[in-house]
Write a protein that binds this DNA or RNA. Structure first.
Lengths: 207, 207
DNA sequence: CACAATTATGAGCAATTATTCAGTTCGCGC
DNA sequence: GCGCGAACTGAATAATTGCTCATAATTGTG
C-alpha cells in the first residue's frame, strides 16, 4: 500500500519476441481492468486473467501493481506530447484563438480514448510517489511551453504570464477531463467553443 | 466493494446524548483518517481506533464504510450551501465581477478547510452510487442557480446560458480544488484574481 | 434499588489480495 | 535433436480488511 516501492523498472529485459508480446498483453489488459474496476478493485489476478497469462508471468515483468499503472501513465503522457508535436509540424496558426483551439482540441482527443482509465490515473497519482513525480515534471514542461508562447504572441495581454499559463493548463486539463468522463454524454463541439472562447478572451483582454 | 449497499442510513436513532457524541467522534476521526490515508487505506478499524471507540460501536452507527463517507460528503455540501447563503444575506453586489468574485471566494474558503479530505470525496464519488446521486443533484442545482443569475444580469452576454453556467460551475469547482490541494503552496489571492478575471471576461464579452 | 433499554466492547470470521517460488514448457543456437 | 537459458505456470502464503455477534457496561425511570 505504500507508494515508494524500490523497483519500478521491469524485472526482465525481453530477449524474445514472445516476451515483448506478453508485456503488451499485460498493459492492454491492465488498461481495461483499471478502467472498469478502478485501481483498488483492479487486482493483479484479474489483469493476468484478462491477459490470459498466469499471475506469475505478470510479476516477471512488473515488480508490483503500481508499476503497471506507472507505465500506462508514462505511455499516455508520451502519446500526448507526440500528438501535440504532430499537430505543430506544419507550424502554429497566427491567431491566438486558433492556437488555443488547437491546444484544446488536442487535449480533448487525447482524453476521448479512454476517459475511465484516465480517471484512474489522475485519481491514483497523488498516492504514488513515482506517478507524482512523473506528472509534476510533465506539467512543469507544459506550463513553461505555454508561458513562452504567451510571451511571444502579440495578442496576449496578461500581467503575469507564469500565472496565466498555469491557470490555462490546469483549466484545460481539468475541464476536458471532467467533460469527457462525465456519465451523461455532452455536446463536445459546443463545449470546445465555449472553453476556447473563455481562454481566448481571458488571454487577450487588456490587463 | 459494491456501491449499492441497501442501507446507508444510520442503524440507530440516538436516544442518549452519549450516542450523538459517539457519532460525532466517528465522523471527525473518519475525516482525519480518510484525508491522511485515502479511502481504500482508510480502514474502519483505523477510524474506530482514532475515535477511541471499539470497531463494534462504529458499526452500530454506520452500516458500512461507504456510509461514513457519504455522510461526510453530505455535511460538506450542506456547509457549502449554507456558506453561500450566508454571504448573500445582505444581497448580491451589482457588478458581475463582484458577483463572480463572491462565488469564487466562497468556493476557495470551502475547500481550504481540508483539501485532502475533499480529494478523497471527489475521487470516491464515481464508485459510490449514493455519492454519485448526491453530488449530481447538488451540481444540477448549482448550474440552475447560476443560469438564472446569468439570465437576469445585464452584463452577461453569452449565447447559451445553460452551457455557460455548466462551464463556469465546473471550472470553479475543479480549478479551486486543484489549487488548494496542490502539494506546493500557491499564491491564492493572485489565482483568485486571475480566475475571476477569466470568468468575468468570458461572461461579459459580446457573443 | 431494580430493571429494561440503550450503548459499548473486541476477539474472531470469512473473504480478498498482492506476491512468491518450485517446477514446467518453450525457443533458439549449435 | 540436444541443451540451456528464457519464459511461463498456478497453487500456496501471509497479510489485510470489512464486518458480526455474544457479552458487558451504562443510563434513565419508576
Amino acid at each position: 500500500m505504500t507508494s515508494d516501492k524500490r523497483r519500478l523498472q521491469p524485472r526482465k529485459q525481453p530477449r524474445q519476441v514472445r516476451a515483448e508480446l506478453t508485456r503488451q498483453r499485460i498493459l492492454t489488459a491492465a488498461a481495461h481492468v483499471f478502467a472498469e474496476h478502478g485501481y483498488a478493485a483492479g487486482t493483479t489476478n484479474r489483469i493476468a486473467e484478462r491477459a490470459r497469462i498466469s499471475i506469475g508471468s505478470l510479476y516477471q515483468y512488473y515488480p508490483n501493481k503500481d508499476a503497471i499503472l506507472v507505465e500506462l501513465v508514462a505511455r499516455h503522457l508520451d502519446a500526448g506530447v507526440a500528438a501535440l508535436a504532430r499537430r505543430e509540424e506544419n507550424g502554429l496558426p497566427d491567431s491566438l484563438e486558433e492556437i488555443v483551439r488547437l491546444y484544446v482540441r488536442t487535449a480533448i482527443e487525447n482524453h476521448l480514448d479512454d476517459p475511465q482509465l484516465l480517471r484512474v490515473m489522475i485519481e491514483h497519482a497523488p498516492r504514488s510517489l513515482a506517478l507524482l513525480e512523473k506528472v509534476a515534471r510533465f506539467e512543469q514542461e507544459r506550463v513553461a511551453y505555454m508561458r513562452e508562447l504567451f510571451d511571444r504572441h502579440p495578442e496576449v495581454r496578461v500581467g503575469d504570464s507564469e500565472t496565466a499559463a498555469r491557470l490555462v493548463v490546469s483549466t484545460v486539463e481539468l475541464v476536458v477531463h471532467q467533460l469527457t468522463a462525465a456519465p451523461d454524454p455532452i455536446d463536445i463541439p459546443r463545449f470546445e467553443n465555449e472553453l476556447v472562447a473563455m481562454l481566448t478572451r481571458y488571454l487577450s483582454a487588456a490587463g
